[in-house]
Design a protein around this nucleic acid. Structure first.
Lengths: 234, 234
DNA sequence: TATTAAAAGTGTATTAGTTACATTTAAAAA
DNA sequence: TTTTTAAATGTAACTAATACACTTTTAATA
C-alpha cells in the first residue's frame, strides 16, 4: 500500500494563526503580529505560524503555535482555510492551513509578548504582511464578521465581566458602523443569555455601568433545543 | 533558507471531492461515489480524490480530479475543510483538503461514469465510506444547507431552464422539509433574478409549468450594489 | 364534445420582527 | 446645590414573514 502512495510527492505543511484581540479602551479590534525571525522575509511582519510535525494533527499544531506565542491553551480557535498556491512561499513549496483565534487582549502578559516579538496592531492600520498573509487576514475578518452575527463569539474577546456598552462597542468595532443602543440592548437581553452582576464598572462614567456575564451553559442548553443566536441590529 | 525549512517533515497531500447532484425526477440530492481502486480499503465506497502533485495548487488538484471523474470543467467548486488527523488514513499519513462541487446530474454522461466506477447515491441512504469521508460529507451537507439560503447555488444543481416547482423541490430536498408554495414563489420572484421563458415543461402535468432561467449577470450587478440573496421561507 | 383529473398558479389578512427616535437617571465633581 | 457626563429606558411606525384555499389549464377519458 505504501508503494502506491509513494509515487506521490510530499510537501511542507504549515499552520498560520490569525489572532484577534479587542482593545476595550481604544475600542479597536487588533491583530497579534510578529517580526519574522528567519529567512526568507526575516524581519518582516507576519502572522505567527510554524510547521506541522510528524506526530501532531493540524489542530494540535495550531494549538501548539498559539500556546508558544501566548502561553494560553483552550483558546477559541477555528480552522479557516488552506492556502496551497505553488509559489505562495518563496522559500520552498509550503501549504499552509490558516486558523483564527480570539483572545482577550489583556489575557496576554507583556513578558511573553516581548520574548516572542509579538505586537498588537490595529486592524484598521495593518503593516504590510509577508506572502499571502494579508489574504488570510481578510478572509478571517470576513469570517469573524459573519460569525459574530450568529454565534456568541464576541464574548471570547471580552473579559468575563463586561458592560453592555463594552459589548456594543465591540460589535461596532467589528461591523465598522454605529448600532442603535436601545435596539442592541433589547435584542441581546431578550435572549436571556446575559446575567446582570451586582457590581458596576466605574472607570468610564460617574453613574457606572452594570456588569454582565455570558451564561455559556444556558446557551448550550438553548442551542440543543433549537435556539439560534442572532445579533443583527439596526 | 531551505536549510531552515528542511528540518521539518513533509507529508502526502490529498484532495477529496464531495460531488453533489440533484435528481430532478426522484427529487433527491445525490452524491457521486466511487469504488476505491487501490489499497488500502480497495473496493470500498469512497469520495473521489487524489494526491496533490508538485506543480499544481490545491485548487488545480481539485479541478483535475473533478475533470477526470466527470469530464467537466468550470464546475461550481469550493474548498470545504482540511482534515489532518495523524491516523486518518491507515495507509500512511495523508493530509486531505476536501472540496465540494455542485453539478447537474444529467450533465454527467454514463460512459464516463462507468469507466470511472462512479455511482450516484442518494444522500439519505449512503453506504459506509472509508476513513473520515463520512465526516467530510456531513460537513459539506451542512455547508450546502447554509449556503443555499444566502447564495444562489441551487441553480448549479438544476438545468439552465427549470420550473418553480423544480426549484422548490430542490430546496425541499436539501432542507428536508416542506415549503409553502406561495411564499416560496413570492420571495424568489421578488428578487427579479428569474426570467420567465416562453415555453413550458410538459412532462409532469397537463397544464405545464413555465420555464425560468437564472440571470447571473443581473445577480452580480445587484450584488455589487449591496443586494443579498436570501431564500429562507416558511 | 362534455367531463374528469391532476398539477400549476395566484392574493390577502394576521402576526412577528425590525427600525427610528428623545428623555430620564445616577453619581461624582465643582 | 448645581453641573456634567454617560447609562439606562419604551413606544409607535414600518417592514417582513407567515398561514391559508380556490381557480386555471389542458390532456385524457367517457
Amino acid at each position: 500500500m505504501i508503494k502506491i502512495y509513494s509515487k506521490n510527492p510530499k510537501f511542507y505543511l504549515a499552520v498560520d494563526c490569525i489572532i484577534f484581540g479587542y482593545d476595550i479602551i481604544e475600542k479597536e479590534l487588533k491583530l497579534l503580529l510578529i517580526k519574522r525571525s528567519f529567512e526568507p522575509a526575516k524581519g518582516k511582519w507576519s502572522l505567527s505560524g510554524g510547521f506541522v510535525q510528524e506526530e501532531e494533527s493540524l489542530d494540535e499544531a495550531a494549538s501548539r503555535i498559539l500556546f508558544n506565542l501566548t502561553g494560553l491553551s483552550d483558546l477559541y480557535m477555528e480552522q479557516l482555510y488552506t492556502y496551497g498556491d505553488v509559489n505562495r512561499d518563496p522559500g520552498s513549496r509550503v501549504i499552509s492551513t490558516a486558523y483564527f483565534a480570539l483572545i482577550g487582549i489583556n489575557e496576554l502578559d507583556s513578558e511573553i509578548q516581548e520574548r516572542n516579538g509579538a505586537h498588537w496592531r490595529s486592524i484598521s492600520n495593518l503593516p504590510e504582511l509577508i506572502f499571502d498573509h494579508r489574504e488570510m487576514v481578510d478572509r478571517a475578518l470576513t469570517e469573524l464578521i459573519n460569525r459574530i452575527k450568529v454565534h456568541p463569539v464576541g464574548f471570547e474577546l471580552l473579559p468575563d465581566k463586561f458592560t453592555l456598552v463594552q459589548l456594543q462597542n465591540l460589535y461596532e468595532a467589528i461591523y465598522q458602523r454605529k448600532i442603535d443602543k436601545r435596539n442592541f440592548r433589547k435584542k441581546i437581553l431578550s435572549m436571556n443569555l446575559l446575567e446582570k452582576q451586582t457590581d458596576k464598572e466605574r472607570e468610564t462614567s460617574r453613574k457606572g455601568a452594570w456588569y454582565f456575564r455570558f451564561n455559556e451553559v444556558k446557551y448550550k442548553e438553548l442551542t440543543r433545543n433549537g435556539f439560534f443566536f442572532n445579533l443583527t441590529v439596526s
